[in-house]
């Protein structure tokens, strides 16, 4: 798996412009906003999407076919993608947090530890969802066709969330109160719940991805 991680890191090294643009955006957002939640979430998501980019690069000119003749099992290839996705997103999250907290320090705005934890924990769930959805879709449909499929899944997901929120409002449930209770008053329980949910979602997605790649013909 180390060889595949080295390959993916090298693939990302070619994305200097992307990282430069991302850094500029984080600095601008951190300078303009007092709440760094958006910067951290946005960066983590961008890093999660990079996993999808490395799969597109692997697939470039039918490259996946050759990759699987190397001493790498299909299961190992899939596992590496999830490990890489989680590790790169954690790096993104850490980097964005560092920039955001530093900007807050310079501006004299304190960023409470609990608020940061709530943001990071929410990011982890979002990251798990992005990885869990995009990885099997990309392995199944390839880099070209998967874009539409991923767009469709996330559009459907957003619609589902919107409907749930509306239904809750109709039932008289105050969503702001629910979020406040989950992310501030019961942060530890929520954090554990999110971590366990994320782990389960990723494990199920990993199983599906392994099955897809083992069945795929080149």
């Amino acid at each position: 798996m180390k060889a595949m991680l080295i390959k993916d890191v090298n693939l990302l090294k070619g994305q200097k412009q992307f990282f430069g643009a991302l850094l500029v955006m984080i600095i601008i957002f951190s300078g303009m906003q007092s709440d760094p939640t958006f910067s951290i979430t946005y960066t983590t998501l961008m890093f999660a999407i990079l996993t999808m980019t490395t799969m597109s690069y692997d697939d470039f000119e039918n490259g996946m076919c050759y990759l699987l003749t190397l001493p790498v099992s299909r299961r190992e290839y899939v596992t590496e993608k999830y490990v890489f996705g989680v590790l790169s997103s954690l790096c993104g999250c850490t980097g964005a947090s560092f920039v955001a907290v530093s900007a807050g320090y310079i501006k004299g705005i304190a960023y409470p530890w609990e608020e940061w934890t709530a943001t990071v924990v929410s990011c982890m769930l979002l990251l798990a969802l992005v990885l869990a959805v995009t990885t099997p879709i990309q392995l199944k449909f390839g880099s070209e066709k998967s874009r539409m499929a991923v767009f469709g899944v996330f559009a459907f997901g957003s619609l589902a969330v919107f409907v749930i929120v509306k239904l809750c409002q109709a039932a008289g449930i105050d969503m702001d109160e629910v979020m406040k209770s989950a992310l501030i008053e019961n942060l530890t329980t929520t954090a554990w719940g999110i971590c366990i949910t994320a782990a389960i979602v990723l494990a199920v997605s990993w199983l599906i991805s392994v099955r897809i790649l083992e069945k795929r013909e080149f």
Binding site: L67, L70, F218
Partner: peptide
């Protein structure tokens, strides 16, 4: 393989540590 190879986004220098780990 006739119609496939290493990813076009890598350089030979990128391949060396990867091959070193693989073999």
């Amino acid at each position: 393989l006739a119609d496939s190879g290493f990813s076009g986004y890598l350089t030979v220098n990128n391949l060396i540590p990867m091959l070193d780990r693989l073999y």
